[in-house]
């Protein structure tokens, strides 16, 4: 299960968050835990360089893209490798929508699109689509090309 996908700006404010199967009362803890993790480790990290951590039986893979920090949390079958796959799809979709690693402003400008991408990528905690070209078409309701 992919427990959470979270986007935050450089100051640690949440831009988008999606939790799956995490009780509402635990979300705040996760949010602050992830933001702290990012604040401690993301300084000076290159775009899309993956960082990884585990907390009990839960794995976390996170990175920066432009001004935005992206965190993906998973457990069981979504271990660090599967999550790196997920975050790769997310970063490439975001780059695709924004045309480059986004500034916070650009990210917010494309907010609706990004939400749609996320909707295509993670569906209630499961990875659904993995290819950026396909996602690009799907969010415009166009069928994928390969078929």
């Amino acid at each position: 299960m992919i427990l959470a996908v979270l986007f935050a700006n450089a100051e640690g404010n949440i831009l988008i968050e999606r939790f799956h199967g995490v009780p509402a009362e635990e979300r705040l803890h996760w949010r602050s835990f992830l933001i702290k993790l990012g604040a401690d480790n993301l300084k000076g990290v290159k775009n899309e360089e993956l960082l990884v951590a585990c907390h009990k039986s839960v794995y976390i893979v996170y990175t920066v893209l432009g001004d935005v920090a992206i965190y993906v949390v998973g457990k069981d079958e979504y271990d660090e490798l599967a999550l790196s796959e997920v975050i790769f799809v997310i970063t490439s979709a975001v780059k695709d929508v924004c045309g480059k690693p986004p500034t916070e402003r650009l990210f917010l400008d494309k907010y609706g699109r990004i939400c749609l991408c996320l909707d295509e990528i993670v569906w209630k905690g499961y990875l659904e689509n993995t290819e950026k070209d396909r996602i690009k078409r799907l969010i415009r309701l166009k069928p994928p090309t390969e078929f």
Partner: peptide, 8 residues
């Protein structure tokens, strides 16, 4: 070269 692989 990938940290995730090294970690795993």
């Amino acid at each position: 070269s990938k940290p995730v692989l090294r970690f795993a």
